[in-house]
Structures are given as structure tokens and as C-alpha cells.
């Protein structure tokens, strides 16, 4: 029996290779969030000062919607050819699979954010008044918060009718504190009015609590059939 991490690594490289060859999820996410950005630009035409107050919300809403596009594909891919059933009967740890999926989604969504952030900066003429380096921990922790719960709920919604519709309905209510943390943290850095430390701690707490909960309960969800 292979060790936990080698299973994780194998699944992760398989997912990345699949994505590299097809580029389904990444292309869909990129184009989707580009559309969201363009629609936001048409809807709001703010001054530089105003945009600092609203862009935190816009950025994260765009990323949240785009992430759902990728998360929906995570498990659907495994349903073809009964890969998931094979995984279920294998002695491999369920959490190894879960962790691989989360890491894969984390890489995809981070890549999307890295590509889309410059667009937001250009369209909204942004310049942070606070310490800009703190945006990095907020981005990483916020993305992890979205992706860890999103992967979990995507596995849960596999068992439901109209699967793709179900994921946002489950994910968004539980994500509210994380989204609040990301938006408020980003806004406070951009405006430079308040320190963002509390929001980073909040996101960290959220990540620790929900990563633990996901790892503890994923086996139940995977075996539920």
C-alpha cells in the first residue's frame, strides 16, 4: 500500500496533467471572470478614490463565481468510467484524494487570480494605500477557504439532482465569514484606513476550522452512495 502523500501526489499530478492537456476548467474560469470584470466595468465607473472602497468586493465576487466553475468539474471528471467507484473500493485513504483535489483546485484558482488581478488594477486604476504585501496572505488564505469547502461541497452535491446548481447553494452560505474576511481585509489594505491583521487571523481561523472539519468528515461523504 502506498503512503498517504504518494497517493496525494499521484492524484494531483494526474489532475494537473489532465488540465494541462484539456485546459477545460482553466479556460472556462478565465473567460468567465473576464466577462464578470467587463460587466463590472460597464456597471460602475468610479473615481480612483471610490474604487478603492468597492473593488475588494468586486474582485472577490468575480473569483468566487469563477471558482465555482472549476469546482463543479472536480468530481464530475471522476464519474466518467467509474473512477470514483474504483477509488471507493481501493484501500487508499479518502483524505489523500480529498487533499489532492483541494491542492489541484487551489493551484488553478490561484493561477486565475494571478492572471486576473492585473486586469482589475488596469481597469480600476488601483494603488494600495496600505501595506500591499499583506494582500498575499489574504489572497492565499482566502483562496484556500473557498477551495477547501468548495471541493467538499462539490463532492456532497455529486449525489444530488441538478448537481451544478447545488454547489453554490451549499457553498455560499457557509462561506459568508470567509468572504467578509477577504473583502474587508482587501478594502482595508487598499484604503489604508485600518490594519488588516484581524481579517488575516479570521481567515486563518476559518481555514483551520474548516480544513479540520473537511478532513474529519470527507470519508463519510465519499462513502455515501
Amino acid at each position: 500500500m502506498k503512503s498517504f502523500w504518494s497517493i496525494t501526489l499521484a492524484t494531483l499530478t494526474k489532475d494537473i496533467r489532465l488540465e494541462w492537456r484539456s485546459k477545460d476548467a482553466l479556460n472556462a474560469m478565465l473567460f468567465f471572470s473576464l466577462l464578470v470584470v467587463v460587466i463590472f466595468v460597464f456597471s460602475f465607473d468610479p473615481l480612483a478614490e471610490e474604487s478603492r472602497h468597492i473593488v475588494g468586493g468586486l474582485v472577490w465576487v468575480a473569483f468566487l463565481f469563477a471558482a465555482v466553475v472549476a469546482l463543479n468539474q472536480t468530481w464530475a471528471r471522476e464519474l466518467r468510467n467509474q473512477v470514483l467507484d474504483a477509488y471507493r473500493v481501493s484501500p487508499a485513504s479518502a483524505n489523500a484524494l480529498f487533499l489532492a483535489k483541494v491542492l489541484g483546485n487551489f493551484i488553478f484558482v490561484s493561477l486565475l487570480e494571478a492572471l486576473m488581478t492585473p486586469l482589475f488594477i488596469i481597469f480600476y486604476n488601483l494603488r494600495a494605500l496600505g501595506p500591499a504585501w499583506q494582500l498575499i496572505p489574504i489572497g492565499l488564505l482566502g483562496t484556500w477557504a473557498l477551495v477547501v469547502n468548495g471541493t467538499f461541497f462539490a463532492a456532497m452535491s455529486l449525489r444530488t439532482r441538478s448537481r451544478e446548481l447545488m454547489l453554490p447553494l451549499l457553498l455560499f452560505p457557509v462561506s459568508i465569514p470567509a468572504v467578509l474576511g477577504m473583502v474587508a481585509g482587501t478594502t482595508s489594505i487598499l484604503t489604508g484606513e485600518n490594519p488588516a491583521h484581524f481579517w488575516i487571523v479570521l481567515l486563518l481561523t476559518y481555514d483551520v476550522v474548516f480544513t479540520t472539519a473537511c478532513l474529519g468528515l470527507f470519508e463519510t461523504v465519499l462513502q455515501a452512495e
Partner: peptide
């Protein structure tokens, strides 16, 4: 979720 899920689980 309860409404949309029709599996035994």
C-alpha cells in the same frame, strides 16, 4: 439539499 438529494445517504 434534503429536497434535491434522492440517494439513500
Amino acid at each position: 439539499l434534503r429536497r434535491f438529494s434522492d440517494s439513500a445517504q
